[in-house]
Structure formats: C-alpha cells, structure tokens
Amino acid sequence: MNRQPNIPPPPRLGIFKFTSCDGCQLTLLNCEDELLALTGAIDVAYFPEGRRLALEGEFDVSLVEGSVSTPSQVEEIRNVRDRSRLLVTIGACATSGGIQALKNFAEVPGFIDAVYAHPEYVKTLDTSTAISEHVKVDYQLRGCPISKGQLVELLTSLLAGRKPQIPDEAVCMECKRRGIVCVLVAKGEPCLGPVTHAGCGALCPDFARACYGCFGPKEAANTRSLADAIRAGGRGREEVAALFEKFNVWAQPFRDERNRQRGDSNED
C-alpha cells in the first residue's frame, strides 16, 4: 500500500518479555475484536512471541512484561528504555516484581537447590524487581493478568495523543457498583478488595471468593487497618501475611504489611 508522503508512518510498538508467564502479552492477542483494527493503526515492529522479526530501531511505545531477575536483564531493560519514547509496564511482574519476588525474602541458593540439580548452571540475581526500579517508566498497567479493557484504553489513548483514563480506585468500588454482597463484611472472608487497585471488575467476589490482590495496592492503601480488621476476625499473623505474599508481594504497601505480620519490621 502506497502512503501519501504527508501522512506520518504508523507508530511503532515493541513488546518485550522479561521474567514472566506470557499471560499479559497474551492479553493483547486475546483482544480478538480489536486486534485487526489495532494492527492496522499500529506497526507491531517487535513481538517475538507473534512475529519472526529482528529487534531494530526505535519505538514510539514499548510494552514491557515481566520482572528483572537475571544479570543480563539489567542491561536489556536499559537498551529497551533507550529505544523507547514511551515505556509502559504491563502486569504485576513488570510493575512490582511478580510472584517470583517471593525469592527476595529467601536465601536464593536454597531456592536454586530446591529446583535444580546443578546450581552452577543457573544464572540469576538474588532479587526479582519491578522495571521501575531500573529505568523510568511512563505508564503502568496493573494486574495478574492485566485487564483487556485497560490495555485497549491505553493503546487507543496513546494513539489519540491523550492521557489514558485508568481510575485509581479500590476493587470495592467495582464490587459495590455491581451490587455484589460484601464477602468481607457479610461473610467474614479475608478480602483484599479495600486495598487492591481496580481493574478486574470485582471478579473474585462475583465467584464467591475473597479478592486475592492480583492488581496490587491502590494509591494510599491502608493495608494496616485492613490487616488489623482481618486479625480481629480471628485469623492469625501467618494467615494474614500469606494474603500479601502473592503476585504483588514486592509492592511497597504489601511488602510492608507482610513484614509487619511476619515480625520482620520494627513497627507493630
């Protein structure tokens, strides 16, 4: 197709994977209704999971999935940053280190020994960390996995040159709007809805279970107050700590609360 010389080329999108499960980039392929329109408007210039194209040039937008957990990734993320006008982290691994950040609390040699017969073959850092701990991040999408709706909003807003409309509110707000009976108050289940960033549409309460924090902490999350309330309901420190020891355990408010419950912090 010949383009008129005065029409700018479509924006170049790069999709990069660090330490992760592939689920967030799969969310892009799962936008079945929007995918062809999006690939018509955007040049998906680097996407190893979907395309056999070499890494070349610069990107208007880079989507980064996964956490930094090996020595080479520390260099790679700087390279991605240098090539990208806007860098967007997608998902819990990229925004907070992911579930593999559980190793940040442990002795890594013990972890390697538990899985691999020859630890000397395995090159890994002692920590799994968020992309923002290494380079500047322009936008982030939360979730384990990210929400399709939020991803489409992000890409279309960037195409239109406006700010993405991604509300920072708690899962509770989504839950109330759907008229679901509160699992925390009415059923006494240890629900992280009050401190968790919205985006899933209150999925777990709709499926008769407590929110387990896939989208990580909302702004100004009062984890302490929630943890105290759950403990007052008769649950032990161990159980409350375990609530935070999941996919966003390295996000500061969740990490602090986990440490408080485990007694790894000075305050109580």
Binding site: G23, Q100, K103, F111, A114, V115, K246
Partner: peptide, 24 residues
C-alpha cells in the same frame, strides 16, 4: 529465567496452590 515455583510453593497452604501454579 528460572522462577523457582517448586521452591516457593513450600510452606504455602494447599488452598493457594491452584492460584499460584496457574502463574507458571
């Protein structure tokens, strides 16, 4: 990169396992 799932499953409660292993 290795993610050490078998290691951090140790000590988790049985009920958490399907949520955790899904993330592999």
């Amino acid at each position: 990169p290795p993610r050490f799932f078998e290691a951090f499953l140790q000590g988790k409660s049985r009920e958490e396992v399907p949520d955790v292993t899904a993330r592999i």
